[in-house]
Simulated assay, not measured.
Amino acid sequence: MKRLWDISPLVAPDAPIFPGDEPYALRWTARLSPDCPVNLSALSMSPHVGAHADAPLHYADGVASAAEVDLHPYLGPCRVIHAIGCGALIRIEHLAHAAADLPERVLVRCMQRADTVWNPNFTAYAPETVAWLAERGVRLIGLDTPSVDPASSKTLDSHQQLLRLDLRVLENLVLDDVPEGDYELIALPLKLAGACASPVRAVLRSL
């Protein structure tokens, strides 16, 4: 059987989130009892908690929501490239060693261990790296930190590159145990009407 790597963090009340985001919360609306045959729960959370796919609507108006994005970029051949300890930004030189015959999906492992508490000093993508990947046919990029832009950014230059180049993105992945190499990615967003992002259960499968 093909091996699966679950690259999604646990979604829980203490999951690290951007300051101001809505944390995950669960409440019970019904519980098993002599008068009730089921447990029923209700959830509230930002769609950016845990592993998630930003929709273009997250960084522009009048563009696709999570329910409207093409699903093709989120499913198919993928390369995991290690750039562990590369610093504040993923630059072209951090990826060049694995750039031959890139598939349409590239995930970058920046960390030995994904953060389990909020850390504003995470690694993001340099915008020129996003453009360089797009020039090589990449349609989706991802990483094991909260955002493709630094936490302090007000211009979101890498997100704007995604918009300009029509790329998709996965953030908050867990690549701790994933060797560098090629896989099949499965990380479909939910069909959430009007949402700026969607949680995903991201997995990699051996080829």
Rank of each mutant, 00 (worst) to 15 (best):
Pro19Trp: 02
Ser44Met: 09
Val138His: 07
Asn39Met: 08
Met45Tyr: 05
Arg168Leu: 08
Ile92Cys: 02
Asp14Trp: 02
Asp61His: 12
Ala126Val: 13
Ile186Arg: 14
Ala88Asp: 15
Trp132His: 09
Leu165Asp: 05
Val200Asp: 03
Gln160Tyr: 10
Gly142Phe: 03
Asp61Met: 15
Pro103Asp: 14
His58Gln: 14
Ala187Pro: 05
Ala96Glu: 15
Glu22Ala: 01
Leu95Ser: 08
Glu104Tyr: 05
Leu185Asp: 01
Ala30Tyr: 05
Leu75Tyr: 14
Asp6Ser: 03
Asp21Gln: 04
Trp132Met: 06
Val169Pro: 00
Ser41Ala: 15
Ala151Gly: 08
Ala66Pro: 09
Asp70Lys: 10
Gly85His: 12
Leu95Ile: 15
Val174Trp: 06
Ala64Val: 03
Leu207His: 10
Leu133Asn: 04
Pro199Leu: 03
Pro103Met: 08
Ile92Lys: 02
Ala30Ser: 13
Leu140Ala: 01
Asp35His: 12
Asp70Gly: 04
Ala100Asp: 15
Val138Met: 06
Phe18Leu: 08
Leu95Trp: 10
Ala64Lys: 10
Val178Trp: 06
Thr145Arg: 10
Leu107Arg: 12
Val117Leu: 08
Asp115Thr: 02
Leu185Trp: 04
His94Phe: 08
Glu135Cys: 14
Asp61Ala: 14
His159Thr: 02
Pro56Ser: 09
Gly194Tyr: 06
Ser33Val: 11
His48Ala: 13
Asp177Leu: 12
Ala67Arg: 06
His58Met: 15
Asp144Val: 12
Arg136Trp: 06
Gln160Thr: 02
Glu93Phe: 07
Val80Tyr: 09
Val130Thr: 12
Gly142Ser: 11
Leu4Gly: 05
Leu188Cys: 07
Ala15Gln: 07
Asn121Pro: 09
Ala124Cys: 11
Ala197Phe: 00
Cys86Arg: 04
Glu68Lys: 02
Leu162Met: 09
Pro9Gln: 09
Arg201Glu: 14
